[in-house]
């Protein structure tokens, strides 16, 4: 019962904050948007806790809400996006965007209404750190190792593209 209540609370907060990230009626300031994104991440972490994915919840707060978003904020503040605050929204963009979102939402809700939820066996989530670590180093070892190459590529790319002087 409490879990259900908490789920609706967290889900509603996630949705409201997520909406405020992209369309805040009170402020067009990118910093405000970024702060709401932090809140969205925190509420998402709450949802993960309710799913017993404790490790994921901790990582969500530590990495996304903590590290990544702080970097985002740094970049936004360094770039000084004054022009962004004065930007007017285009009618064309809003209409096409709304149509696209509406279409996907329609299909999704329609699907959900007709899907036999709970009929299939959803896997029991074992979100403990140990279980996750075991899976990562046995069953999912190959993708895990490939991610290291991915990080190397991202590092090379970031250094090359942001290096001040081209020698």
């Amino acid at each position: 019962m409490t879990a259900d209540l908490l789920f609706y609370l967290f889900a509603a907060c996630t949705l409201v904050c997520g909406f405020l990230v992209i369309a805040n009626p009170f402020s067009l300031n990118p910093v405000t948007s970024a702060m709401f994104l932090v809140l969205t991440m925190v509420f998402l972490a709450g949802l993960f806790v309710l799913l017993h994915a404790f490790f994921l919840a901790a990582i969500q707060v530590l990495v996304y809400a903590g590290a990544v978003m702080v970097l985002f904020l740094f970049v936004i503040m360094l770039l000084d996006l004054k022009a962004e605050e004065r930007r007017r929204l285009k009618v064309f963009g809003i209409t096409t965007g709304l149509i696209a979102v509406g279409a996907i939402l329609f299909i999704f809700l329609n699907t959900l209404a007709q899907a036999p939820l709970g009929a299939s066996t959803t896997p029991e989530l074992e979100g403990t750190t140990m279980a996750l670590g075991k899976l990562l180093f046995t069953r999912y070892l190959l993708p895990f190792e490939v991610v290291s190459v991915l990080l190397l590529v991202a590092m090379i790319g970031a250094i090359f593209l942001s290096k001040k002087e081209l020698k």
Partner: peptide, 16 residues
């Protein structure tokens, strides 16, 4: 899982 990681490896490399 491997599909996703390999696709990302291709795509992220191509961004650069």
């Amino acid at each position: 899982a491997l599909l996703f990681v390999s696709l990302e490896l291709i795509t992220i490399t191509f961004y650069v």
